[in-house]
Design a protein around this nucleic acid. Sequence first.
DNA 1: ATATGTGCAAATCCTTTGCATAGAA
DNA 2: TTCTATGCAAAGGATTTGCACATAT
Lengths: 147, 147
Amino acid sequence: MPASSTPLGHEPLSQEALRARLTAHGIGATAQRLEIAALVLSEPQHVTAEIVLSRLGALGRRVSKATVYNTLNLFAARGLLRTLAIDPDVTWFDSNTDAHFHIQHVDSGELVDLDPHSVRLVGLPPLPPGTEVAGIEVVIRVRAQTG
Amino acid sequence: MPASSTPLGHEPLSQEALRARLTAHGIGATAQRLEIAALVLSEPQHVTAEIVLSRLGALGRRVSKATVYNTLNLFAARGLLRTLAIDPDVTWFDSNTDAHFHIQHVDSGELVDLDPHSVRLVGLPPLPPGTEVAGIEVVIRVRAQTG
DNA sequence: ATATGTGCAAATCCTTTGCATAGAA
DNA sequence: TTCTATGCAAAGGATTTGCACATAT
């Protein structure tokens, strides 16, 4: 576990800081990974592989789709990102790894963080014997008001 | 599956009752739909298209994969089932349409209802303006205890 | 008859994978 | 070197779709 370079972990990060962050997580700092890290880790956000790919394209950086998927999955495995398994259509990656919940617009798929202080999960559910919590996800799906 | 309780609409259903239920929801009562309804609506449970397909096969009923998907989606659209969009690998359909949350085993994918009385969501999240709640999903993912 | 539903196969879409090449230690 | 990462295209798996045939009212 790192915790060395960035207190909150989401300040605009220098190339050096990014490299240190990857290294601290046991991730080799390649050009492509640094590009993706710069896009994704600089501030809390929700991204899909497709989004990362298009942003890279907009910046003129050419990174293959396979590498984007590999990198996002690697970051998630090493704790730099959190995988959100709440959308059947696409895998979302969250650069905010703190415990928090989400609002999703069902029409656009867009995700928004839920204010951690506004909603709370109360009560200890009886877990199946021999199991432990791997993660908790709360999604409030919203749509445009009808009528 | 021990039916310790019997939520609304989950009594063992006769062919007549099933037909009436479909008709009441504006669904034409075809042979295939009745087969699937008998399997799925008779008691609260979580199923995937694949599960329904294999159960039908085990009973010697031949229903095409396309029809199983069409039927489950139709049932969900008409309110007989609830779609659970919490598993990136597969779409789960829940024949318990009452508000409740879930525990999922990350290894097997298996879903279990969370006792509605043990866990509660507290606090009103500020919804994006012009939106209304379409649904709320809470998933507690568990895994086999390590160590 | 006339509108609907079913089944098969092909098509889609997201994601992963195999393998040859390129880069880093 | 020697190990690891990248890129391309193909593979994979769940779900949808087009269309001809069958069914129901």
